[in-house]
Simulated scan of single mutants.
Amino acid sequence: METIVDEPQWLRTASWIGCPLAGAALGWFLQSISGWVASLSWVPFKGPFKLVSEIPQPWGTVTGIGVGLVAGLLFAAVWAHERLIVKVTPARITLTTKGRSRAYEAELEAVFLDGKELVLLAADGRELVRQKGDVDRKAVAKAFLDHGYPWLDEAPAVK
């Protein structure tokens, strides 16, 4: 039996919908205020705003929304690529992030979260892995405890 700790399905789905929609809204907003921003005397880098404001309508709006949509999709893709997935069994821990999976089968002295980093300490006290990720603290603790791993609620004191 394995336990998988990952972002909830609703959050993964929402990121693929929400990020592009937010990007499209931001693209529309920036395009719609570009002429006004270009007219302000104190604004640095007026060139891009002036260029955007001179795109004839409706193509200016379509372009702004399209660029924002693509930027939102890219952001969602990076988010998905960077997320940490933790799979725990009694014999193996598998950490997946950035499209790579690494499995650990060593006997462990401790497992804990140090801020947003998951840390596995080998039985000899050395740090086996320190993996950054935004995992649910309670879910990951439960996964390790359910499979008999030595979970610590906080980082141990340095020896």
Rank of each mutant, 00 (worst) to 15 (best):
W28I: 12
Q31E: 08
S32V: 03
G35W: 02
W36A: 14
V37A: 12
W42V: 13
P44A: 12
P44N: 11
K46V: 14
G47N: 08
G47T: 06
P56G: 14
G60N: 04
V62W: 15
G66E: 06
L69S: 08
L73P: 07
F75V: 13
A76N: 06
W79S: 05
H81C: 06
H81A: 12
E82P: 00
R83S: 01
I85T: 10
I85A: 01
V86W: 00
V88H: 02
P90G: 09
A91W: 05
R92N: 11
L95E: 05
K98N: 10
R100E: 09
R100D: 02
R100C: 02
S101Q: 14
V111L: 01
E117Q: 13
L118W: 04
V119K: 08
A122G: 09
A122C: 04
A123P: 03
A123W: 02
G125H: 06
E127F: 04
Q131C: 07
G133W: 07
V135F: 00
V140S: 00
V140Q: 00
A141G: 07
A141L: 04
K142Q: 13
F144N: 06
L145C: 11
D146H: 02
L152E: 15
D153A: 09
D153R: 03
A157C: 05
V158W: 02
